[in-house]
């Protein structure tokens, strides 16, 4: 009983704590107090829309870095980073064959932090392809695709394709020699398919060769079409992880 007795004078720290975490503004935002008790910690996760992607508890082995190497999480982190840096790049970039290359040059030379933003976007894009591939390998080698997670693996394969397409469509946008010819080589591969190849290539490029039509198509896919699809599939991917009972664990 003694432990529940209230101390006669509350310390400075306690009063500060109450002032910060029990006032009406904090409560209106977070509903629960600062997560320093198990109850508040669970509430913090369960009542926050972002943290709610997680369960409130997790199996011991799954927090070991060497179980996931954080690779799925890193892919998602890079996707978010790419969205932010991508939006900043959109402020300066106009997808026209007259302006695109000059805009990128200006970004590299005139715009404050422009080169940094472009570099970040580029390295994160390469990084995401790598982390997604490695995430797929970790899922495979931990046998995490087995029932009941079969379909989440399939969603993963769709995400892999979307990641590659996002990177591929972004590749054209700087409109330099590397961009033009890489996309020419890539879209010619599509064109070599039997029967439907050439019509498909024509639709993708918007003509017989990579030009303004291709640029605006790739740009639209890159900044809105594919990211939206990726976001939808990621939502399903994360939701399924929760529905399938968290990460796979040994039987």
């Amino acid at each position: 009983m003694a432990s529940t007795e209230r101390p006669t004078r509350r310390s400075m720290g306690d009063r500060l704590y109450d002032a910060i975490f029990s006032n009406r503004v904090w409560r209106s935002i977070f509903r629960s107090g600062y997560p320093n008790t198990p109850r508040n910690q669970m509430l913090a996760v369960a009542t926050n829309v972002f943290l709610h992607l997680h369960p409130t508890r997790i199996h011991r082995t799954h927090v070991k870095i060497t179980h996931t190497f954080c690779l799925g999480g890193l892919s998602f982190f890079l996707f978010l980073g790419l969205t932010i840096s991508g939006v900043l790049l959109m402020f300066y970039y106009v997808p026209s064959v007259e302006r695109a290359y000059e805009d990128i040059l200006r970004l590299d030379t005139d715009v404050r932090f422009g080169q940094l933003m472009r570099n970040m976007h580029r390295w994160m894009a390469h990084g995401m392809v790598l982390t997604v591939l490695m995430h797929m390998m970790r899922v495979f080698y931990t046998g995490a695709y087995k029932p009941p997670r079969e379909f989440n693996w399939v969603i993963g394969v769709v995400l892999l394709v979307l990641t590659l397409l996002l990177s591929f469509t972004g590749y054209l946008l700087p409109w330099d020699q590397l961009a033009l010819w890489a996309i020419t080589v890539g879209t010619n591969m599509v064109g070599s398919a039997p029967l439907l190849g050439e019509p498909n290539r024509f639709v993708l490029v918007g003509g017989f060769q990579v030009g303004q039509n291709a640029l605006i198509r790739f740009y639209t896919l890159h900044v809105i079409g594919l990211p939206l699809m990726a976001a939808v599939f990621m939502t399903v991917h994360f939701w399924r992880i929760r529905r399938d009972g968290g990460l796979a664990k040994p039987l």
Binding site: Y101, D108, N119, M120, D176
Partner: peptide, 18 residues
């Protein structure tokens, strides 16, 4: 990533020329 981006610039070749 910031470290990498400060030290290594993304590649940009000449303007596209069909």
């Amino acid at each position: 990533l910031v470290g990498l981006s400060v030290t290594v610039d993304a590649i940009l070749l000449d303007r596209a020329n069909p």
